[in-house]
Amino acid sequence: MQPFDYYRPESFEEAFELLSQPRKTAVAIAGGTDVIPQTRDGIRRPDLVVDIKGLPGMRDLAMTSMAPCCGAGPDECLYVGAAVRINEIARSSIVQDHWPILADAAASIGNEQIRNRATIGGNICTASPAADSAPALYVLDASVLIKGPRGEDRCLPIAQFFTGPKRNALKHAEIVAGLLIPGSPAGTLSFHEKLSRRKAGDLSIVSVAVMAFPSANSTTWRLALGAVGPTPVRAPEAEAILARGYDAEAVDLAAASAYGCCSPIGDIRSSLDYRQAMVVNLARKAIRAVVAQLPQA
């Protein structure tokens, strides 16, 4: 690997200073499971590697009364520090009990060794369209807490954080400090599924997250897809169809309409034709899995 200097700042001020040094290429690192191979392959050529996982609050996973910047704003949210490991999320009893879709999505990432190093903040900052935590974070209406070098903290809905393939909304020297996950209403049902070439330890061809919860006179639905466009996507048309009813015909219609939100490509993992077919199949399977748990319409 080409030489660089490694720093482990203890305060955000120190980290911002390192990340904004003039004429130096700096990269923030948490789990390193993307940055280290990219540096080894020469895709990144950092002068400085700034290890941010020791910064205050970065490893916290706890309930908080902080208001999310988007969504319904229930009184209690889950705060997930950006440097919380994927396996800590997958195995957290509070996540398993209250946000099972997030635990399932986390457990579907990479392999055991990767999940023990990779972090939730890193997964979204890499901003792969196939980031496996993303569809779950999209349906949960997660918010991203961002800290900046001039003290200008900001908060973005997850869907605004992903701006393109491997592109995120961070400005120079900004750091993702954590995520806020709104509490799910009582009776929430969800399902996450990922399709890949191997059953595990592979990147997604398509991934899907579906969530449904009872609201006033109907059921509110949320559906998100990964690996089928420049960023993960929500499928609002499918959500609207399901809100009007979820009999077999509506489910087929919703799954077919989900395809309208996607702009997939063919790549090493899947041809375009196969991916197009699988969007509809996986969406239908996920919707059916949630419908099977709901009181029948």
Binding site: Y6, G32, I36, P37, N87, Q113, N116, R117
Partner: peptide, 19 residues
């Protein structure tokens, strides 16, 4: 390259030495 780091399996090729 798997080793246990604080009891957990990790890829030692993807852990920087100072970490």
């Amino acid at each position: 390259c798997t080793v246990l780091m604080d009891g957990l399996p990790v890829n030692s090729c993807m852990v920087l030495a100072p970490e």
